[in-house]
């Protein structure tokens, strides 16, 4: 059995590597565009991400070491983020954006692991697709991989605590995690591009109007898709998955 798990692990790992390495995406970046944050801001956001990501890498190594079969779910979580960030959906505001898919990973493995998956996706998008950017990688990882996934994790945890049904908790976790990502993106842009009149607040409202409002229907769709995927994997593997990465 262990051999089967190992084979499966290697195979899915390879597949995951193939998507990350060969896929390119030319969707417009809904993340912060290359060169749009001054160097100082890029460095600060980058440094803030480091301890979180180090935590995530340690956790992934420990998980794969103790429970090699979790590679299936890791590959799935990575692929989910990858697919959702490829789908630009129209919104009521007359513009388009894409989802993050980060809630799924955050609920399943905890926010630090989700952060590592998001940095992989963001990195490849920045290098191969001119999507997001290398200089803004830290800021984008912070909004999606840290704030987005921590929000999703906390919402799920709190809703579970107060006894709400699992799918309701998953829905709100994924939706609010998605939305939080773009609220932070707006704030990051506002901080370095304050309006002449009204300063940071005025510009935050402007950017939030573009990113966060556009994101609302998409966040709802992301919540729904995450619930469906959870329904499917819990039906087939309810004994294998334990949320929060307590494997």
């Amino acid at each position: 059995m262990l051999n089967n798990y190992k084979m499966n692990g290697i195979l899915t790992g390879l597949l995951a590597f193939v998507i990350f390495a060969t896929t390119t995406q030319a969707v417009q970046a809904m993340h912060i565009m290359e060169g749009f944050l001054p160097p100082s801001a890029c460095i600060v956001w980058g440094i803030l991400c480091v301890p979180f990501l180090a935590c995530g890498i340690t956790k992934i190594n420990r998980l794969l070491d103790r429970h090699p079969q979790t590679i299936t779910f890791l590959a799935m979580a990575g692929a989910f983020t990858f697919v959702l960030s490829a789908l630009k959906l129209p919104s009521m505001t007359g513009s388009s954006s894409h989802m993050t898919g980060i809630g799924f990973a955050a609920i399943l493995f905890g926010p630090s692991v989700a952060g590592v998956l998001s940095v992989i996706v963001l990195l490849f998008q920045a290098v191969l697709l001119a999507h997001g950017g290398l200089t803004t990688l830290g800021a984008n990882t912070f909004s999606m991989g840290i704030v987005g996934s921590v929000t999703a994790f906390l919402v799920y945890y709190l809703l579970q605590k107060i006894g709400s049904p699992k799918s309701v908790a998953i829905f709100f976790a994924a939706s609010l995690g998605d939305l939080a990502t773009y609220v932070v993106t707006s704030l990051q842009l506002a901080l370095v591009h304050p309006s002449e009149v009204g300063g940071i607040t005025a510009s935050f409202i402007k950017f939030a109007g573009i990113f966060a409002i556009t994101q609302i229907p998409l966040a709802i769709v992301e919540g729904i898709l995450t619930v469906v995927l959870f329904n499917i994997i819990t039906a087939y593997a309810h004994d294998t998955i334990k949320p929060f990465g307590e494997h």
Binding site: Q28, A29, H31, G94, S95, L189, I210, F211, Q215
Partner: peptide, 8 residues
């Protein structure tokens, strides 16, 4: 339905 980033 242009990208939100183009608007930004």
């Amino acid at each position: 339905f242009a990208g939100a980033d183009t608007q930004a």
